[in-house]
């Protein structure tokens, strides 16, 4: 069915308290502002600060009928530097997925840590990395990386635009929108692509 191709699924993962759910809502809203249909389904457990928190966002030009959080993500966005090392966040990941990590490790050590956990198994994945925590600490003074990481999606994939993101930030954050948008812009600029398998 053509619908399957048109549908983009994004999985956002982080830890409770980092704004994963808000990020999912903002991503969906930005896609909506760009004229697409969108749906953001957060997955919840008994909430605890620091525990795995994730959200599935679906974007499609057509009406989205699927009502479950089991996804085959085309994009994986890791807000937290270590969550993917302690929880398996790869379930259903598409072979040619785009993976975006927040890390301040060297490319080599990140690469071997990712290899160790099978993130390059398919060789088809495109991996981006940026130090979103540093951006958040610079701009917000807090290690809340969600608004920066959305900028990374805009920079890496074109699923949403920085303009659409800006409009959503203004509606959501009011006077705090500009500083969050600065996070997103910085993230889109500082994003680097990890070379594919040697």
């Amino acid at each position: 069915m053509s619908n399957a191709k048109l549908l983009t699924e994004v999985r956002l993962v982080g830890r409770g308290g980092q704004g994963v759910v808000t990020a999912g809502e903002l991503l969906g809203a930005a896609a909506l502002a760009g004229g697409a249909n969108a749906q953001a389904i957060p997955t919840f457990g008994p909430e605890r600060r620091g525990a795995l928190s994730s959200c599935v966002v679906r974007v499609s030009p057509e009406e989205i009928l699927l009502k479950h959080s089991v996804a085959r993500p085309d994009i994986l966005l890791c807000l937290d530097p270590t969550i993917w090392q302690v929880n398996d966040v790869r379930q259903g990941l598409a072979d040619d997925a785009t993976l975006i990590f927040n890390s301040n490790q060297s490319q080599e050590s990140l690469r071997s840590a990712l290899d160790e956990r099978g993130f390059f198994a398919s060789n088809g994945a495109t991996v981006f990395v940026l130090d979103a925590t540093a951006i958040a600490l610079e701009q917000l003074g807090k290690p809340i990386t969600n608004t920066a990481m959305l900028g990374a999606i805009a920079g890496a994939t074109g699923l949403i635009s920085l303009d659409a993101l800006g409009a959503c930030y203004r509606e959501r954050f009011g006077p705090r929108a500009e500083v969050n948008l600065a996070c997103a812009r910085a993230a889109a600029e500082r994003l680097t692509r990890l070379p594919s398998a040697a």
């Binding site: 969108a38 749906q39 953001a40 389904i41 957060p42 919840f44 989205i64």
Partner: peptide, 12 residues
């Protein structure tokens, strides 16, 4: 409406 799957899901 279904808890979480609709109550917490955002849609247009």
């Amino acid at each position: 409406y279904d808890g979480f799957i609709l109550s917490h899901a955002s849609e247009p």
